[in-house]
Design a protein around this nucleic acid. Structure first.
Lengths: 235, 235
DNA sequence: AATGTTTATATGTAGGTACATAATATTGTC
DNA sequence: GACAATATTATGTACCTACATATAAACATT
């Protein structure tokens, strides 16, 4: 149907995608081999390959050597979350960002942190608690542990002026991370810091980063009520 | 330093990535042009291009025509969340999945749904409320609206036996979606359905899908206490 | 029938060439 | 100096060829 005169790999991708969307190819169906599609659409196989790679990344199709390309049976909803530096996030919404350091001290990591960071034993790390504010109102409360072994320079940073969040993200690239999202009821300490009622439902974003096998930091960011994480995709 | 004998694009990618990680290239720095990197590493430019594309997708570098390639100044934490079919999720953890339809009726969309789906005016849709269970215990409570205009076939599906979640994801591919994550305190209705105390902190996953401009469905999935969304990345 | 081995084949990758495109840098004009 | 037109250049895309790799399918062996 749709003309044989196609060019870019995005056209090819959209062409195939459309056929999945309109039911020409249904979940589980096998698609023609790249070469045949290329011939049908009048383009090179490499162009089809590029298009298919994208559809595969997007979770639309599955490809296997020799096995061919199939429309995914259980399409997962694949969402890409971008978690920006908190200051940027606040400023992007036109609000004034500010920051308050609540605690900074060296301490032995408790068991929970040992587990999270996959340490072999407790060790001394920098424990930082800080509040990010948007228009002078509490926005995110972060409880962070930073490895002084992996990131010793953090000890020289004036954390009362610059957030560890920002310094780390700019100066300590990581090679691996975990992200964990869940809800908690505000406990006494958090309720006070965030100025919310005890028991309020709050979204927590927990992030842990490593460089190679070395732990850099783990942070538990407790957001204020109403906070939403958004992801969009498509078109 | 690292030998000039490199081959695959993944090697090239890792090589560059390593140099970002070890500080050879710092945030904001400009990288050599693809051609020079290709020459240095002894590979074709297309191989470097492939590697750079991947680093760009991962949010490590930014590329601009004529402008060259730069290490991102504000590295965002980019996480890919896969949200599977609920049944699969439960079964993957070795639990027994079951499902209970709580309500199914045609109704006018309330204002909030009109907004979410970007409708021009309220219209009649299928309103479904259902409970997903894991080992006979409440797991996720979903409140869903399905467009009978875009997906009329849903009216013929026996929703007391098959979840709308599964039917839709298998039969109604979408071209665009929104994802929204936040925390709520359980209200009376939810507390009863999920068998939790009123006021308990719950993670909510809200998903809306369209095909082109046509709304398919919007669902508000309220998870049980302790539910976590995970994303991992790297190495 | 169950198991191991070989073969065929679709995708994956690398190399090379040519041209397209966008955006910066330069030049020209007032 | 300000601004518009033009040239330059790094990335992006397309096409082709050749070979690598995984694995489904066919075949052989117990």
């Amino acid at each position: 149907m749709s003309g044989p005169i196609r060019r870019s790999w995005k056209d090819v991708r959209d062409h195939i995608h459309r056929r999945v969307l309109d039911g020409t190819y249904r979940p589980g169906d096998k698609l023609p081999r790249d070469e045949d599609i290329a011939e049908t659409l009048g383009c090179a196989r490499s162009t089809v390959q590029r298009a298919m790679q994208d559809l595969s990344d997007a979770g639309i199709v599955e490809r296997k050597r020799k096995g061919g390309t199939h429309v995914r049976v259980d399409p997962v909803s694949r969402a890409t979350l971008d978690i920006p530096i908190t200051r940027r996030e606040v400023e992007a919404r036109g609000a004034t960002y500010s920051y308050h350091l609540a605690q900074r001290r060296l301490a032995q990591t408790p068991r929970s942190i040992v587990t999270t960071l996959a340490l072999s034993a407790p060790e001394e790390m920098l424990h930082v608690q800080a509040l990010h504010l948007s228009d002078r109102r509490p926005y995110i409360y972060e409880d962070r542990w930073v490895s002084t072994r992996t990131a010793p320079e953090i000890l020289d940073v004036d954390l009362s002026r610059f957030s560890a969040n920002e310094w780390l993200v700019r100066n300590k690239p990581y090679s691996r991370y975990d992200l964990r999202l869940y809800a908690i009821a505000a406990e006494a300490a958090e309720a006070v810091q965030l100025d919310v009622e005890q028991g309020a439902a709050l979204l927590v974003i927990e992030r842990t980063t490593w460089i190679g096998d070395l732990p850099i930091t783990t942070v538990r960011s407790v957001t204020t009520p109403g906070y939403q994480l958004l992801a969009q995709n498509g078109e």
